[in-house]
Design a binder for these strands. Structure first.
Lengths: 153, 153
DNA sequence: TCGCTATTTGCAACCTTGTTGCAAATAGCG
DNA sequence: CGCTATTTGCAACAAGGTTGCAAATAGCGA
């Protein structure tokens, strides 16, 4: 159940620390260094980051382990980020892509691990066995992205 | 990424210990009590079992924790079972359903957690952004199964 | 049927990922 | 500038899973 995502169309929002702080206050919370730094990292990350990724990117010990867990969870709770489990079942976090997560397909690159949202209508609701009710449908594609295929951008 | 599965059409293969032992030897391994008992459990389980499920079903301590981990991994490695992470990111194991996992859709019941394989052609390969190559496509549906909806069998 | 040996098992210790409780620090309001 | 609710850091804990190694055993061949 992937849940996170950059779009094939670039969206490297390398916002300034100040604007990130504003975005944090916009959701009604304090703009602390920890939150700003983590948000900053996520906003330039080429792929979803794990707790460990963030920790070592920040320099181990620069931020308490537990604080980082809490910042990451808070980011998700506040809607600024989304999390999804990777193939080793470790949470990975990435910036929430603006709008609501509508009905679309996901493409998982087996090369770099990134997940792309494809704007594509949800597949036509298939007929289910009697008595079954459908709540959600997801089309998950996997393969290799352009970059991993060596196609120059 | 669900990967396991009973079909809506029953397939409770409650094979005898002897035939299970044969199935084990068929993949070129020793038919030990541990393996037979675990395989037996999986073959009658109504839904994918976690390590913990199997452990307590067998009676805690009746089989070493580590041995159980190894038996479960071996089952997957040998192709007799498949594993998938549940919503709490804990591995759950179930018998591999006979044939190869062809192109079909999965239905995950949010009530009981079971995963059903729906015989249904894979969705038509969508057009991907330039440079992307498709290796796999999976249609994952979720909702409630007939039983959880209270529809008598 | 009996030994033999490669395969399995059990044990103990360890690792990774994540959580909880609580006191000290601090963002940002007035 | 001071106050207070919010955050942080620390220490301890917990679940799920892994590793190394010595003891037990499945099942082969004699």
């Amino acid at each position: 159940m992937p849940e996170t995502y950059s779009t094939p169309s670039t969206h490297s929002s390398s916002a300034s620390a100040a604007s990130l702080a504003e975005r944090i206050r916009a959701v009604g919370a304090r703009a602390t260094p920890a939150r700003i730094r983590v948000l900053e990292l996520l906003s330039v990350a080429p792929r979803p980051l794990s707790h460990h990724d963030v920790e070592s990117a920040l320099g181990a010990g620069s931020l308490d382990r537990v604080t980082l867990y809490r910042v990451l969870d808070w980011l998700v709770e506040s809607g600024l980020a989304v999390k999804g489990a990777d193939e080793r079942r470790v949470w990975r976090f990435s910036l929430a892509s603006g709008g609501t997560h509508g009905s679309h397909a996901h493409f998982h690159c087996e090369g770099c691990g990134r997940v792309f949202c494809l704007d594509m209508p949800a597949p036509s609701p298939p007929s289910l066995p009697g008595g079954f009710t459908l709540l959600r449908a997801a089309l998950d594609l996997s393969g290799r992205c352009a970059q991993c295929n060596g196609v120059s951008a």
